[in-house]
Structures are given as structure tokens and as C-alpha cells.
Simulated assay, not measured.
Amino acid sequence: MINPGSVVFENVRKSFGAFTAVPDLSLRIEPGTLVTLLGPSGCGKTTTLRMLAGLEHPTSGRILIGNKDVTMLPANERDVSMVFQSYALFPHMTSLDNVAYGLESSGLKRGEARERAEEGLKLVGLGGMGHRLPAELSGGQQQRVAVARALVLEPQVLLLDEPLSNLDARLRRRVRTEIRELQQRLGFTAVYVTHDQDEALAVSDQIIVMKDGGIAQQGAPRDLYDAPASAFIADFMGEANVVDCNVLSVDAGQALIDIAGLRHRLPAGKAAQGAAQLAIRPNAIDLSPDGATTGFSGNIIHSAYLGDHVEYEVDTGSTKLFVVDASADEPLPVSTRVRIGLRDRGIAIIG
């Protein structure tokens, strides 16, 4: 029976000699949620996960799992299980033996361990495949064996370190869906590390975007995508055009902005009147013939047809905009003059 636990970091610092990987990290993860640590290489997400697993110890601060202080406990005394990027399956053991291994090592009788291992394989959709060796399984099936091996230990927290990085794009989509559905069905707490924004958006209750060992922004996937707090978040959580604008007024939570003569209303967030920056998603831009009366002018300098959408680069004179048009049947030719308008969603004031 899985008993999901909370995770708390209190002013955690981790240094390696003169280098500080995590300067001062405080966060809380609620029981039964899947939270993703997302960020570029070197941002501190893997170090954070390793401290939670007990593979590294903080230089200072506290870590609690299920309200228990585990800061200095070794990995084998923490109620967590980890799914590694490399799967770490024993090649000479069957899938059933791989899943049962941790149970038997913890002192469970062989018969009961194998019975629970069978149930674990059924949970991940591999019932009846316990006799197969890892080499006889696909990459996605091997990953599910690794998940089953971690889950049968009934941890308070399941840790997943770049679990899909060895799979091809199509298989990644399928397995991430399976992991998310399993987490929601069983209700375990999961901490998931990835550098893939699409993966984070697809599986998470909450995303913690890390930068330089700290939290750049934390929130639900849609909140981070629709209301990025900075240019870094806007660009990291999917592509964004960052342009200058002027906030003309703020009233009842709505801001009226001016961008190159185009006026537009949008949620104000924390914006105040005056100069600001605007993050515009590529699919939030409308292109119209140059004779249109609204919008501001631009010139198409690049056009690419990609099957289900067309990508443009548009030069406005002051900046270049990346535009994605999902409705165009035929690409507009290079050198076409267009008018640029904004849609209601996919635009946020960031500073």
C-alpha cells in the first residue's frame, strides 16, 4: 500500500569545494502530486534530486520526507525509490527477478516477493512478461520494468531522473502518458527531473523551473506557459518573442498596452504603467494582408512549410518575430508585406 509523503527543502545549500551548485533552496511538494524539476544543464536539478535520494548530503539546511528529517540519512534508510535514466536492470535476470530483487534484499520471503513483483508488472501493463530478459524487451518495456521495480517497494516518494531520455520521440510520448496515468491512479508522490519542456508540461501537477541552483518560477504547467515571470521562463517554456511595449493603463486586473502603434488588452499580472516587455508566443500572432487597417507592418524574410503548420520570420524594422501559422494552406512568399495582430492567448507582460 503506497503512502504518499510530502517533500520539504528548508534553506538547503550544496557546495562542492569552492563551487556552489545549490545556494539556498526552499520548496514544498504536496503528497500525491507529480512535480517536475525543469531547467537547462547545470541549473541544479539533478543535484537537488540526488540530495533527496540520499546520494548527496546538503552542506547546510534540512530535507524532510513525510515530516521526517532525513537530511543526513543514507539512501537505504529513506523511504524513496529511484528510476534511473539508464534503467539499471540486471541483464542476466528476468523481468520478474529484476522487480523482485529489491523486495528480497529487504528481507521479504521469496514467494511473497515474487507475488508482489507479478502485481507490479501488471500495474505497468507487463503482466505475463515476467519470464523475459531485459534484452528481449523494447526500450519502453524496460523502462516500465524499472518503474515497477521502484513501485513495489511502496515508497513515500518516487524519484525519476530523466526517465525517457533513452527513448525515441514517439515512444517518449507514449511512456510519459503511461507514467502520468499510473501516478494519478495510484496517487504516489513523484519528483521528476527533465530538461524537456514538452515532457514537463505533459506530466506535471507543478513545475519548478530552476536556474543557477534556485527557483526561477514555480506553478501549474499552464500558469508557467501563459504567464511567465521573466524572459528566461518565457523562452525556456516554449519559444517566445520578447519585445518592448508600453503599458498605457492598468485597471481591474487588465492592462492596455501599445506595441508599435497596436493597442491590445491582456491580463496585467504585476505590471505597472510605463515601459515593459512582452512575451509573445509564435502562435499568438496573426498575419494579414498589408492593406488591413489594424496591426503594425512587417516583411516576411523567411517562410517554411512543415506539413501541419507554416513558420515565418517577420522583420518589423525594430525586431524580428518568429510566427507559427497552423491555418495557412499555402505559405506566404518571402518579401510579402503583412500586418501583424495579436490574439487573446499566448501573450504576457514580463517586466
Rank of each mutant, 00 (worst) to 15 (best):
Ser15Ile: 00
Gly39Glu: 00
Gly127Val: 10
Ser95Trp: 02
Ala271Ser: 11
Phe232Gly: 07
Ala202Trp: 08
Val314Gly: 05
Asp290Ile: 14
Tyr312Ser: 00
Asp79Pro: 05
Arg50Asp: 09
His92Arg: 01
Thr59Tyr: 02
Val22Gly: 00
Asp308Ser: 13
Glu313Phe: 13
Ala326Cys: 13
Arg337Asn: 09
Glu104His: 08
Pro228Tyr: 00
Asp161Trp: 03
Glu118Ile: 10
Ile300Val: 10
Leu27Thr: 06
Thr189Ala: 08
Ala292Ser: 08
Glu104Val: 10
Gly140Trp: 01
Gln277His: 13
Glu77Tyr: 14
Ile65Glu: 03
Glu104Ile: 09
Gly219Tyr: 05
Ser318His: 11
Phe9Pro: 03
Glu311Leu: 07
Asn98Pro: 04
Arg110Phe: 10
Leu287Glu: 04
Arg13Glu: 02
Gly140Leu: 03
Thr33Asn: 09
Arg116Met: 10
Leu186Pro: 11
Val7Asp: 05
Asp196Ala: 05
Met93Phe: 04
Lys14Asp: 00
Leu186Gly: 12
Glu162Asn: 11
Thr59Cys: 05
Leu201Pro: 10
Gly32Met: 04
Val209Gly: 07
Gly238Lys: 06
Leu256Val: 12
Ala169Phe: 02
Pro58Thr: 01
Glu311Phe: 05
Val147Lys: 03
Pro163Gln: 03
Glu181Pro: 12
Gly17Pro: 08
Asp196Pro: 05
Lys68Phe: 13
Gly341Lys: 10
Ile259Ala: 05
Phe84Cys: 02
Gln184Tyr: 12
Leu133Arg: 13
Asp258Cys: 02
Leu89Val: 05
Asn166Tyr: 09
Ser86Glu: 14
Val314Arg: 04
Thr194Cys: 07
Thr94Arg: 00
Leu321Ser: 09
Thr47Trp: 01
Glu77Val: 13
Gly130Met: 00
Gly127Glu: 12
Asp308Tyr: 08
Arg50Trp: 09
Ala53Arg: 03
Leu38Val: 07
Gly130Asn: 00
Arg62Met: 06
Ser318Gln: 13
Ala234Trp: 02
Ile285Arg: 01
Thr94Asn: 00
Ala272Met: 14
Glu199Gly: 05
Arg50Thr: 10
Asn67Gly: 11
Ser105Met: 15
Lys14Leu: 03
Leu121Val: 07
Gly351Gln: 15
Glu330Met: 14
Ala240His: 07
Gln217Leu: 02
Ile179Cys: 08
Thr59Gln: 02
Glu112His: 12
Gln218Ile: 13
Leu121Ile: 08
Asp258Gly: 02
Ala200Gln: 07
Leu121Glu: 07
Gln197Val: 14
Val242Ile: 10
Pro40Asp: 07
Leu108Pro: 13
Asp244Pro: 13
Arg172Pro: 09
Leu278Asp: 02
Arg185Tyr: 09
Arg114Tyr: 14
Thr319Gln: 14
Asp258Thr: 05
Ser86Cys: 11
Ala348Val: 03
Ser327Ala: 15
Ser86Asn: 14
Pro23Val: 06
Val152Gly: 04
Leu201Asp: 11
Ser318Cys: 10
Leu103Asp: 08
Ala276Gly: 08
Asp315Glu: 09
Gly111Gln: 15
Gly120Arg: 00
Ala284Pro: 04
Leu123His: 01
Thr36Ala: 03
His92Tyr: 03
Arg337His: 11
Arg174Cys: 12
Asp79Gly: 05
Leu34Glu: 05
Ile280Phe: 01
Val191Asn: 02
Thr316Met: 06
Phe232Val: 03
Phe232Trp: 04
Ala231Arg: 08
Ser318Ala: 12
Arg114Ile: 08
Ile233His: 01
Leu137Pro: 01
Thr71Lys: 02
Gly44Met: 04
Arg343Leu: 11
